[in-house]
Simulated scan of single mutants.
Amino acid sequence: MIAKLCWQLILSKGVIRDIERLCMRFFWKGSDTSARGARVSWSQVCSLRYEGGLGLRNLVVWSRACCLLLVKNILAGEGSLWITWVNEYCFRSVDYWNIECNAHFSWILSKLLKLREEARRLFYPNVNWIQIKGSWIWENIRDRREKVSWHRLVWFPAHIPKFSLISCMVILDRLPTKDRLARFGMSTDNVCEVWGIRMKSRNHLLSDCAYAREV
Rank of each mutant, 00 (worst) to 15 (best):
L5S: 06
L5C: 13
L5E: 07
L5R: 15
C6I: 11
C6F: 07
C6E: 14
C6K: 13
C6N: 15
C6Y: 07
C6L: 07
W7R: 13
W7Q: 13
W7K: 08
W7N: 14
W7P: 05
W7Y: 10
Q8P: 02
Q8R: 14
Q8I: 14
Q8S: 15
Q8C: 15
Q8G: 15
Q8A: 15
Q8D: 10
L9S: 07
L9Q: 06
L9R: 09
L9E: 09
L9P: 05
I10Q: 08
I10R: 04
I10V: 09
I10E: 08
I10D: 13
I10C: 08
L11I: 01
L11T: 01
S12L: 12
S12K: 06
S12W: 08
S12G: 12
S12N: 11
S12P: 06
K13M: 05
K13T: 02
K13Q: 08
G14R: 14
G14Y: 09
V15K: 12
V15Y: 05
V15W: 05
V15M: 04
I16G: 03
I16M: 09
I16N: 02
I16K: 03
R17P: 08
R17E: 15
D18Q: 09
D18C: 05
D18T: 06
D18H: 04
D18R: 03
D18K: 10
D18N: 13
I19R: 11
I19C: 15
I19Q: 02
I19A: 05
E20M: 11
E20P: 04
E20G: 07
E20C: 13
R21E: 02
R21Q: 04
L22N: 03
L22H: 09
L22F: 05
L22Q: 03
L22C: 04
C23F: 01
C23M: 06
C23R: 01
M24W: 00
M24P: 00
M24H: 00
M24C: 00
R25I: 00
R25Q: 05
R25K: 10
R25H: 03
R25V: 00
R25C: 00
F26I: 11
F26E: 03
F26D: 09
F27Q: 00
F27E: 01
F27G: 00
W28V: 01
W28P: 01
W28A: 04
W28G: 00
W28E: 02
K29A: 10
K29P: 02
K29I: 10
K29H: 03
K29D: 05
K29C: 06
K29M: 07
K29W: 07
K29Q: 08
G30R: 11
G30P: 06
G30L: 11
G30A: 08
G30T: 10
G30C: 11
G30V: 14
S31L: 09
S31H: 08
S31T: 11
S31Q: 12
S31D: 14
S31M: 12
D32V: 07
D32M: 05
D32T: 06
D32L: 09
D32W: 07
D32N: 06
T33M: 13
T33A: 08
T33K: 14
T33S: 14
T33P: 07
T33E: 15
S34L: 08
S34P: 02
S34N: 11
S34H: 09
S34T: 13
